[in-house]
């Protein structure tokens, strides 16, 4: 199709102009690929590895959606987006699904006409400082030079935090995490601030991570979640429930290892419904009955994805914290699957 667009853009485009379809699901199925927006590179969340394959926490969510919808977890086209391009890319239809550490805020949900389908990571903004600086609280940062990634909510939180505490600072805006890291390491700023998870991920890549500390203050709520365009509720439902299925799977003890075994012999009706052996949940969202099974098999349940990409065993080394299941005192709470 692309060739036709290139060569006869006008003629073909003229024909297509009438069909302003809102059915993302049909588009994705026709294309055979899910266009998924991710960051340009943040270790643990989404970054290409040495072979150029994308991997990470957000990437896994994309793959789960692709597996549920298309039956192939590799049928994903990853589109690297910056803070600037991510919303246009989604609004203009260049991507179907944006999983890029995006904070769920009122205006993004309403004014920008997007739908957040849930939260895949509960985060908050923190500060990283060199140990040598001898700072133990963010409130001691009066007059400090602060590196921030522009175009993120962190920029606004930072301004609010310093204003609230009536202390001054000097912002050094950077475009990407890599740049922020360079500036910070070169001493061009005293502290680097971004989501605490991002700070941990960044610190993990340092030569001597031990020389840097994260300050105890978490100055904001950052519910990070994937989002889709507003108005296509079918597509929104599918993606929302793929995410919920991953979370529910952990709660129910379904892992990518035991899923086959569980499919046949479980007497827990909720598991049976989720894995499609009972009921017709798949039909209700326009998919077949094995959608959730495929999604979970793609990269594992939520817990597995977390452990594999950003958990304590990885260089990123994040504890589950708020992101534990509600049964373990966390905030993850998937609505009942029925």
């Amino acid at each position: 199709m692309k060739k036709t667009v290139i060569f006869g853009a006008l003629t073909v485009a003229g024909l297509a102009a009438g069909a302003a379809g809102a059915a993302t699901l049909d588009d994705v199925k026709a294309r055979g690929k899910l266009n998924c927006g991710v960051t340009t590179g943040l270790a643990g969340f989404a970054a290409p590895n040495a072979n150029g394959e994308w991997e990470g926490f957000d990437v896994a969510v994309c793959r789960a959606v692709a597996a549920a919808v298309l039956g192939d977890k590799n049928a994903v086209e990853f589109v690297p987006t910056t803070g600037k391009t991510r919303f246009t890319a989604l609004a203009s239809g260049e991507i179907d699904f944006l999983a890029r550490n995006t904070t769920w805020t009122f205006s993004r949900d309403t004014d920008l006409k997007f739908d957040f389908i849930g939260v895949n990571y509960y985060d908050g903004q923190g500060f990283m400082v060199p140990k040598a600086l001898g700072v133990s609280s963010a409130k001691d940062l009066d007059g400090a030079t602060v590196c921030i990634q522009t175009g993120t909510t962190t920029e606004l939180n930072l301004a609010d935090f310093f204003r609230k505490n009536n202390i001054s600072y000097e912002p050094v805006p950077v475009e990407t995490n890599a740049e922020g890291q360079q500036q910070y390491l070169a001493g061009a700023c005293d502290t680097y601030t971004t989501d605490a998870s991002g700070l941990a991920a960044t610190r993990a890549t340092f030569e001597t991570p031990g020389d840097h500390v994260l300050l105890p203050e978490i100055i904001s709520k950052e519910p990070l979640g994937p989002l889709v365009r507003h108005g296509d509720n079918e597509w929104g439902d599918i993606t929302r429930w793929v995410l919920n299925a991953l979370i529910a799977a952990e709660e129910l003890g379904i892992t990518s290892a035991n899923i086959e075994e569980m499919t046949g012999n479980t007497n827990n009706p909720e598991i049976a419904r989720l894995l499609g052996t009972e009921g017709t949940l798949g039909e209700m969202i326009g998919l077949d009955n094995e959608w959730a099974k495929r999604a979970i098999m793609a990269e594992g349940n939520y817990g597995e994805i977390f452990a594999k990409n950003i958990g304590e065993e990885t260089p990123i080394g994040l504890a589950r914290g708020l992101n534990a299941q509600w049964t373990d005192g966390g905030l993850l709470y998937a609505p009942p699957v029925r």
Binding site: K84, T150, T152, V172, V174, E175
Partner: peptide
Amino acid sequence: GYADITATLGGITLNQTG
């Protein structure tokens, strides 16, 4: 990271307001 018009209006403002 110099705050010229491209960085303020075309950068941060664009990002924050969409």
